[in-house]
Computed example of a mutant assay.
Amino acid sequence: MKSLKILVVLTLLLVVSAFAFTQIDTFESGYAVGDVATDFKLKNVDGNVVSLSDFDKAKGFIVVFTCNTCPFAMANEDRILDLDKEFKAKGYPVIAINPNNPEVQPGDSFEAMQERAREKGFTFPYLFDENQEIYPQYGATKTPHVYLLQKEGESLLVRYIGAIDDSVRDEATVTKRFVADAVQALLAGKPVEPSNTKAIGCSIKA
Rank of each mutant, 00 (worst) to 15 (best):
I24E: 07
E28V: 13
D25W: 03
V8H: 06
F21L: 15
A32E: 13
I24A: 08
L7R: 15
L13Y: 13
K2S: 08
V15P: 04
V36C: 00
V9D: 06
K5P: 07
I24T: 05
V16W: 03
G34S: 09
K5V: 15
L12T: 02
D25S: 13
S29T: 10
S17Q: 08
V8M: 14
V16M: 07
V8I: 15
V15C: 08
I24F: 09
I24Y: 09
Q23K: 11
Q23N: 02
V9Y: 09
I6N: 02
L12P: 11
A18D: 09
D35C: 11
D35R: 12
G34H: 11
K5F: 13
V16G: 01
G30E: 06
V8Y: 09
L12H: 04
L10M: 10
K2C: 01
S29F: 02
L4F: 13
V8Q: 11
V8K: 12
L4Y: 09
T11V: 12
A20T: 11
Q23S: 04
A18I: 00
T26H: 10
K5R: 07
G34Q: 12
L10A: 14
V9I: 15
V36K: 10
L4R: 06
D35F: 10
D35G: 13
V15N: 05
F19K: 09
A18T: 06
V36I: 12
L14W: 03
S29E: 10
V36W: 01
T11F: 07
K2H: 04
G34C: 11
T22H: 05
L10C: 08
D25G: 01
V16P: 00
Q23F: 05
D35M: 08
S29Q: 13
V15G: 04
I6W: 02
G30A: 08
S17A: 15
S17F: 10
S17K: 05
A18W: 09
Q23I: 10
L13G: 15
T22I: 01
L13V: 15
A32F: 08
A20D: 09
K5N: 12
F27T: 05
S17L: 15
A20S: 14
V9T: 12
L10I: 06
I6S: 00
A32T: 01
V8L: 15
T26M: 01
S3F: 05
V33E: 06
S17H: 03
A32P: 01
D25T: 13
L13W: 12
V15R: 04
I6P: 01
F21P: 02
L13H: 13
T26V: 04
E28S: 08
G30K: 07
L13P: 15
L12V: 14
Q23Y: 03
V8P: 04
F21W: 14
T26S: 04
S17P: 00
L7V: 12
K5H: 11
Y31R: 03
T26P: 00
V36P: 00
V9W: 08
I6H: 02
A32M: 09
V36F: 04
L12N: 03
K2G: 05
Q23H: 04
E28Y: 07
I6F: 03
D35E: 06
Q23R: 11
L12R: 07
G34W: 13
